[in-house]
Design a protein around this nucleic acid. Structure first.
Lengths: 153, 153
DNA sequence: GGAATATAGTTAGCTATGCTAACTAAATTC
DNA sequence: GAATTTAGTTAGCATAGCTAACTATATTCC
């Protein structure tokens, strides 16, 4: 197993510097890309929730809230907005009358893919200035961070 | 000079895949870290604007809005909030009565540094699970992306 | 079986952040 | 000195986050 730096040995200064720059870079990257999402008529929170449904299948409201790291009332409103735009449909759980099953409509799937396409094309057009090597580095680093996020408490 | 992929040759599929995962990872990373910022009593937009002032010195409202990529009315309200909390002070420009000069107060500088510390410690505590090699990879990739952002139109 | 408790979601109401449209006030141009 | 431009504000709308308090259904426990 690879050597791991754990919380028992406090992290070296280098980690703080990386954390700081990573944070600032992530903020400014998203601030730009977010505007593309808004062009679809749905805000980023709705978009992100819809993408969980499209790629992860039907979910209850609580599961969606947990996946998106927001509280149930917040997700309740996001889902209400998606339902109003007919991007998701909601059915009652026959086993448990308190639960709802939320699933994307064909319209929802279509809108997600279009928005995703628009956003990715925008980001990709800027990543296109990178060399193949740099792109590979960004790709690898993204996977590393995605793993950190999965282990996040 | 290294081979560059330019907009003249459309980007390969790989770029889209990286763009997509980068976007999703950035969203989820920030969603977690944002909660630490809120713990300081000021929201992320105020925090970010304050950091521009602390590291970049006094600015007019328009300059701040441009730096933060928001419209003037939005920045007007952010600055009003910072002023209400006595984190910035505002003086009129003696040369041009329409312009305002916004600068951080000592209290603002202190709060920024504390919040930054808290947020960075939080992020760093999770980056601490990485090996030195992985951390270096994330660091390098962050610099690459920061460069892309600087060149962004 | 029925009361107490736990769980899933909603409603109400607050704050913050984004926008556009329309305004005020100061500076500049003609 | 009138017209225009520029800097910032105000008003009003929508999204998105929260907590507190509510409803309705399930479960537990006597």
């Amino acid at each position: 197993m690879a050597k791991k730096i754990t919380k028992q040995n406090p992290p070296p200064l280098e980690v703080f510097s990386v954390a700081d720059r990573l944070h600032s870079t992530a903020i400014h990257l998203l601030r730009r890309v977010r505007k593309q999402d808004v062009a679809s008529g749905e805000g980023p929170a709705r978009f992100s929730a819809l993408s969980v449904l499209v790629f992860g299948g039907a979910k209850t409201l609580g599961e969606l809230a947990a996946a998106e790291q927001v509280k149930p009332p917040t997700m309740s409103r996001i889902v209400a907005g998606l339902a109003r735009s007919k991007l998701v449909e909601i059915t009652a759980d026959p086993q448990d009358g308190r639960r709802m099953s939320i699933r994307p409509t064909p319209r929802g799937v279509k809108l997600l893919h279009e928005g995703r396409q628009r956003r990715i094309e925008y980001l990709a057009s800027h990543l296109a200035e990178l060399t193949a090597q740099e792109l590979a580095q960004v790709a690898e680093s993204t996977e590393i961070l995605a793993r950190v996020l999965r282990n996040w408490t």
